[in-house]
Design a protein around this nucleic acid. Sequence first.
RNA 1: GCGAGAAUAUCUAAGUGGCCAACAGAGGCAGACUCAAGAUCUGUUCCCGAAGGGGUUCGCAGGUUCAACUCCUGCUUCUCGCACCA
Length: 928
Amino acid sequence: MSQFNLSAFEEEAHEQWTHAFESNPSDLEKYYLNVAFPYPSGAMHVGHGRTYIVPDVVARFWRMRGKQVLFPMAFHVTGAPVVGISKRIANKDEKTIRLYRDLYRVPQNILDQFTDPLTIVKHFADEYQRVMTACGLSIDWRRRFITVDPTYSKFIEWQWKHLYEAGHVMKGAHPVRYCTVDENPVGDHDLLEGDKAEVIKFTLVMFRFSDAFIPCATLRPETIHGVTNLWANPDVTYVKIKLDGKPWIVSKEAAEKLALQDHTVEVTGEIRGSDLVGKKVSHPLCGEVPILPAPFVDPDMASGMVMSVPAHAPFDYIALRDLQQKGQYTEIKPIPLIKVEGYGEVPAQYAVEKAGIANQMDSRMDALTQEIYSAEFSKGKLFDKYGGKPVRVAREEVAELMQQKYDSVVMYEFDQRPVVCRCGNKVKVKILHDQWFLKYGDQAWKQEVQDHLDTMALVPTEVRAEFDRTIWWLKDWACTRRVGLGTKFPWDPAQLIEPLSDSTVYMAYYTIAHKVREIEPKLLTPEVFDYIFLGKESEDLPEKKKLDAMRKEFLYWYPYDFRFSAKDLISNHLTFQLFHHCTVFAGQKDKLPKGMVVFGMGLLNGAKMSSSKGNVFLLEDAVKEFGGDTVRMFLMGSAEPWQDFDWRNELVLSTKKQIERFHNTVMEIKDATGEPHDIDRWLASRLQLHITKTTEALDNFQTRQALQEAYFGIETDLKWYRRRLPKDCDGSRELHELCSVWVRLLAPFIPFTGEHLWKELAGEGLISFAPWPVADAKLVSPKIELAEELLARTVEDIESIVKLIQLQPKAITIALAPEWKHQVFRTIATAQDKNTVIKEIMKDESMRKRGKETTDTAKQCTTLIHRLPPHVVAPLVQDPINEKAVFDAAKTFLSQEFGVPVHVVMAEEAGHVKALTALPFKPAIIIE
RNA sequence: GCGAGAAUAUCUAAGUGGCCAACAGAGGCAGACUCAAGAUCUGUUCCCGAAGGGGUUCGCAGGUUCAACUCCUGCUUCUCGCACCA
């Protein structure tokens, strides 16, 4: 007799699985699924577990359904993070070392080698494979690769050649966050502060000051007509510079920034802010305006000089008001120039006064500024004397004018500050040259992708909106890098292909990964891949025989059926890969991806899993502690894939008990020898339903739903079945078939236990390849199920009455409704018009004779019909069951259940008032 | 701020107009078995009830409907994404 011992089952199964899931083209229909490959920079936690177990369950399901399934895996090692990690380890950074030594438990001798980034990813790639195998993932490991393999690099080069030829790769300049100390662009994760800051474009409006220009940065160049003065900070020292040879006056900080933004900057002198105050500058369009003192002007914000438009900018309005209240500059009046509905003559004044704002410190100032900004931008129009154009048009025109006529430039600046690098230095905006882009901003390309997306299957359907939005939101993507691991950029070998951009068509590479290795990398020209993937013939192809084999693999497997990934990849990777597929396989619509399944996130004890915070539970530990099947079943059963799930050890523990219970039940009943009873037919009928529902659920990737049906659904039925069996019988020989079905339905979820039980059941071969159960329509009997439901409901009713009256019953009588009540029931259930149905019934003379009894019955039946599920009412009308026969047959069972004699009579024979309440499907119950 | 979702009993969670006091699991409580613990099994787990019933519920406030957990409107709260990074 088999004892429940998960780790023994696991060992048994692993032995048989070693090469079992290596998959080759065959005569069978294929099913190709894949998952976003991991970046192995650390150990796997249980959150990763689900990401890979869901596709495995699906893979196992389709394999059992007779498809040739390909489930490959590889490792993404390109990029910068591990380079940083290796540096930190080399620098003996305590926090990093603790993470790797203590949490990920990397042995010291290996940790010592982590100063080399490639060693890190190779170490964890091996670990990933080990843990994935421990989880029972049915992966074809022959196809494993890492993204710096020379052959893979060749494949990337081929892919990029196509992108380039399609005109999607472009060289350009690009503003980036830049640290002048590190002399490097700064990514989100390198920021101490300001990760939400965006780079925005300021127009510099040029005011002439003697022989130089003072540039004022603004987002609203169209308000130039309303400038009444400039603001300068009297406590700041400004510098005179030559910007590209032209004399300017800006803050010191601004001079440094401009130097990073494609300009030559030569500092020629200094001038104190206080020396500027009171002077006049000439307005670019007409006349002169004064420079006023303003301590609030931040030299580190854009040019360090501000133009004041008090009619439209609340800050300017208040600053001016403050000065005027001290009796200064009273001659200056706000000059309105934009008309916008609902903001009076002078919008800034109107808004400030309406809000009752007293001074610049008011916390509502920002919101107010934003409000006016938006209102004017969307609805505002310039006054006729200034051209009468909408704000959005005028803005462009003034910006244009400044650059054409006044040698103004665009200045990039953050929309909020401070932005601080990890090193503590302030981050600036730098324009990077020799930067290459993928033109995701290209409208035609977007449209191609959109057209294809519309034909794809997306699970869950809600994510479609997010994909749609991403496609149109994507802008050109900087696709080369200077640091990290990766493939050299073909058109500039000093740079590397950006890591997200090198992992977009690799699903096609899987189809040949194990074979392409046999060819020397240097022979892998673009022509070779053109032949394999596109069928393009060319002269002198090397190793033609091998290429043909690969071509065959590709044609057999591609396109992939489903790609699985966590939902945070929608806005980049998952959409990128569609762009790339559309280009590389242009003109071959049948090679484009067919579907995607997007997952939710993982929580640990209710909190987000995070390696850096130490809130992780390592997958390997989970498998060791609870067993692979337990981890699988828990992860699949606690939520549907696209929902967030929460890992809690207590719950996992009870999952293990469930598997044990399943194992023990199967072992108990599989060899039952009893003769089949009527209830066996019921059980068989129910089983077909569970087969159908489990299959449907897995068809739709609903792992939780499937598990509910396949595990709990069958278990509950089995309980009722065993309760219904005669005392001396512990099951019929037909239970063997039930066990066989049951074990197979659960095999995708708990394959280790599955393999073991399959052997115990003397099943043929491995359960991993056993045929998936198919519901047999001949075994389905709605009538038997309905009769059983009647019985179960009646038993429930009796139980609840017995409990309520707290009497020890001596006998139970079940009184059945007479035929005329069934007639009433049927008439009401089928009635079109609920209002006239009673009249209809009363047309019958025998009904009329019963008078009130009939009307009461009609009312009760109406209520009852509402309460019964449709699946009960419908058959009751079409093909009524013989209640007498049902209860007569169950008499023994009923008296056994309640320990008293049970009588079954027709209501009119009962001679008891209670009997009169009998209704169809709800017999009267008389307890004495 | 913008975009995409979510809110159901102690927890996880099913439920898209009448099957609903609401599937299932976990947990709690009571009981059986046991010397005992664990495991297992049974009952119970919003309130009331000595006859299968009644009452109040599914974030908050309204609305549509004979009928709403389910549809509509507004509000509140939460999660995810907003990129040059895997």
